[in-house]
């Protein structure tokens, strides 16, 4: 069963094509990594899935339901969660309040408290529940955001460069977290540059280039693909 599918997805900005005929599909329970050189259209694709951009044409389906016209918050309510590249947290609030805001839309009372406790334990921030989120280390802020995203128990988790700015230890721990979430049945779509990390987590890899799907396959197939190596070493325009 497909969790996310796009059909003939196009996006133009003043005549500049940033997504072209994207026919993407990923299965429920899959970890998919989206890679590509700068300017390949990865962030645009994320924004289209999240509803931050409306496609020029084409359709987006989530669990076989058309979500193309839904607003961002409505897509989130359907079961999509996101973790941004730059930690999207509420810096002036405590870690607990950050989690509360994430969870209170779905749960109340004791079940909300236990969901927060569970999510904080998962991202190893139980001891920091009373700290201001803005005073956490960069890696902890990234984990807090992951905790906020997963506490809503989404069916699809979008991760935009989840390990950006992390130490190797934090990166490895993040990889373990993602695999653990996936074992519990969560589908994950991640934009990532760190090929070591991609190798650690990805079931399948999609390569984007100039807004088009350039290649798709397992990490071994992608790494063996000479054309993929060429576009990475080539002179693609940086627009992201």
């Amino acid at each position: 069963m497909t969790i996310l599918r796009t059909e003939k997805l196009y996006k133009h900005f003043d005549g500049v094509k940033v997504a072209q005929d994207v026919n993407f599909s990923m299965e429920h329970g899959e970890i998919r990594c989206l890679i590509g050189p700068n300017g390949a259209g990865k962030s645009t694709f994320f924004k289209l899935v999240l509803g931050e951009h409306q496609p020029s044409s084409g359709e987006i389906y989530f669990s076989d339901q058309k979500i193309t016209k839904l607003r961002s918050f409505e897509r989130v309510k359907q079961g999509i969660a996101v973790k941004f590249q730059v930690p999207g947290i509420f810096s002036e609030l405590s870690v607990w309040q950050n989690m509360q805001i994430a969870v209170q839309n779905h749960l109340h009372g004791d079940s909300m408290t236990s969901a927060i406790d569970k999510a904080l334990a998962f991202v190893r921030l139980t001891d920091k529940a009373g700290e201001l989120a803005g005073e956490l280390s960069h890696g902890e802020q990234q984990w807090l955001e992951i905790g906020m995203a997963v506490s809503t128990e989404p069916r699809l988790l979008l991760l935009d460069e989840p390990t950006a700015g992390m130490t190797p230890e934090e990166t490895a721990r993040t990889g373990e977290m993602i695999q653990e979430l996936n074992r519990k049945g969560m589908s994950i779509l991640a934009v990532e540059h760190d090929m070591e990390f991609v190798r650690q987590i990805a079931h399948k890899v999609t390569v984007l280039n100039f807004g088009e799907i350039f290649a798709e396959g397992t990490i071994n197939e992608i790494e063996a693909n000479e054309e993929v190596a060429r576009i990475y070493l080539g002179t693609a325009d940086d627009d992201e």
């Binding site: 918050f73 989130v76 999207g88 509420f90 805001i101």
Partner: peptide, 22 residues
Amino acid sequence: RFGNVLVAIRENPHRAEMLGYD
């Protein structure tokens, strides 16, 4: 809960929307 969401919007409206709030 309403106040929590208001503060979330003040702090980071983008994140608040991406947590499912209109």
